[in-house]
Structures are given as C-alpha cells and as structure tokens.
Amino acid sequence: MNAFSFACTACGKCCNSPPAMALPELFRHRDRFIGCLAIGRVPRRRVGERLRVGRHEAVLDEADIAAFDSIANTLLYRTGDTFSIMTQGYDYPSLARCPALADDGRCAIHLNGKPVTCEVVPLDPFVPDALQHLVLAGRNQSASYIGADCIQEGERADAPLLTAEGEIKDANARDALARRRSALEREREVWGRAVFDSLRKDLFASPAALARIPPGGFLTISIVPVLLAVASTSARCRQLCLDYIDSQIALIGRNIEQALLRRRLEDRAVTQELRGFAHAYQRAKALLGTTLPAMEVESSAPSSLSSIEAYLCGAHR
C-alpha cells in the first residue's frame, strides 16, 4: 500500500530545528530566527533506478524522471551536479528545538506568520507528488517522528488521508505544497540565480569547496550574498536589508551570550560560525553604505522593483 494518513497532534517532536524559510519570512521574524543560506546536493535520478524505504519501493520510469526534471528546472540549480539553495533559520543544534517553540511545546507563531514549510510537513517540495509516499515512509521511521503517531499507513478514521494512488489527497496539503514551491520559484527569480552565479567560482566550480557539503545534509553559510543581491535593486530594498542586518547582529549577540552561559563543548563550533555571520553582516553594512553595482534581478523597471519590495515585506507569498 502507498496510502498514508496524517494528523498533526502539535506534539512538537518534528520541531527539533529551525525550518527552511523564504526571505520574507526571515525578514518578518528577524528577531527570532537567525538567517543563513543552506546549500545541498540533490542526486540526479535515472530511469530504472530503484527507490526503497522499508517495504515501500518504486522503480523510476520516464514520467518520474520528467517530474524530477521539472522540479529541478524551476526550483533547483544545475552546474554538472544539481543543488538546492535555500534561506533558512539557524540555531545551536544542541538545543534540538525550533526557536519558535514555546515552553509548553506549542508553536509561538502558529497564528502569526508560521513559515509555509511548516504547513508542508511532512511532505517534501523537491519530490514529485507521485513519490511522496516514500517521503512519508521514511519520515515515519525517523527519530523525529517515532512515537508521534501522526503518520499512519493506510486510510484511518482518526486521520485525514494524505497520499494514495500516487496523488496528494488532502486539499490543504496540496495547497501548502503549491505555495512552498511557488515561494521557492519566486526566490530563485528574485535572488537565487544571482547568488548562484556569485558563488559559482568559489563554491560550485571548486571540488574542494563542494566536499564541504555533507552527504544528505547542507552547507550553511552567511545569508549576506542574498541580501546584497536584493539590496542592489532599490533604495527601499537596501534599507530593508540594513534593518534586517541590525536585528540579526543583535540576535546573534544574544544567542552567543546564552550559549556561553550553557558552557557546552559542542556549542563552540556553532558560536564560531555565528561570530563569522556577525562579521559578514558588519562588512555588508559597510558595503551597503556605498553605491552597489546593479545586478540582474528580474528587471530594472519600476514595476519589477516595486514587486521585489512588496515581496520582501511579505505581500507576496
């Protein structure tokens, strides 16, 4: 059976790290989430490739590969290999919790701008709809979901049917998945391609640099390349980025201060990385105080610039 039902109980077990967030979401929650750029390597799929999770299995056909290619062409970045480039929240892994998780285990921003990524859970926007049952099978076995009982195989009376017959059956899940993919496509247009080009030489064309991307994980770097890309489009965008930078420098300072009080050995590497983020922000502030060269982000037409400004302010989802 490839049918899965899902009913969130708001137990918070899967809220064990900061989520991937679109840039407007990070701007909205600038005093809660430290932003970073997460770069991952996405494996290319081949016809006849066998994907297996427990007893669930799929042999990829031409339609599956076409679906993967469609996602890659609109949401991902290719230069030999295929990569995902996303903005997301960042925090000390030792805390094992999302910064938006309240003391009672509930989401503090559930009704106040919860990231679309959280609505998509437990689905994966980079996987074709017809194969989402494999995502659910894998997450049903992961430590984050064990004991949560939110993902169940087959149709259940106590949980809405999420996937069956290669389709997303739940209308709310379909809508959330479409909005997340739309946001990723918009990010690619607004800043993604410009950032990809700016990192091409030092990262994507360097085997040594690419080796830093852990298998199945992400390389996290400062979000500054994203800010420089959008700040170059208008004076208003520049000011929005400067305001964001000031909030982030203050938040990083508070988080480091709390980490020093915890005195955990495993926090040291993250503290060092956060200090690097803060230094990058300071350099970006100095650069934004000068005239930035224009970058090819959408168009120089006033309507396009207004669109980007509105997007940063969260008017476009």
Rank of each mutant, 00 (worst) to 15 (best):
L184S: 07
E185Q: 15
E185D: 07
E187M: 02
R188T: 00
R188P: 04
E189P: 10
G192M: 00
R193G: 11
D197N: 13
L199W: 01
A205P: 04
S206A: 09
A208K: 12
A209V: 13
A209Y: 09
A211S: 14
R212F: 12
R212C: 09
R212H: 05
I213G: 08
P214K: 00
P215W: 06
I223V: 07
V224F: 08
P225M: 06
P225N: 04
L227W: 09
A229R: 05
A229H: 02
V230P: 12
A231W: 08
S232N: 09
S234V: 09
S234A: 14
A235I: 15
C237P: 02
C241A: 12
L242S: 11
L242E: 11
Y244E: 07
Y244V: 07
Y244A: 09
I245Y: 09
I245A: 14
S247W: 01
Q248L: 00
Q248V: 05
Q248K: 09
I249Y: 08
L251N: 10
I252Y: 00
R254H: 08
N255L: 10
N255A: 12
E257P: 01
A259G: 08
R263Q: 06
D267A: 00
E273V: 15
G276K: 09
A280G: 02
A284T: 02
A284D: 05
A286N: 15
L288N: 04
L288M: 14
A294T: 10
A294W: 10
M295C: 12
M295D: 11
M295A: 02
M295Q: 07
M295V: 06
E296C: 09
E296Y: 06
V297L: 01
S299Y: 03
S299W: 01
S299I: 12
A301L: 06
S304G: 07
S306I: 03
S306F: 05
I308K: 00
I308G: 00
A310I: 04
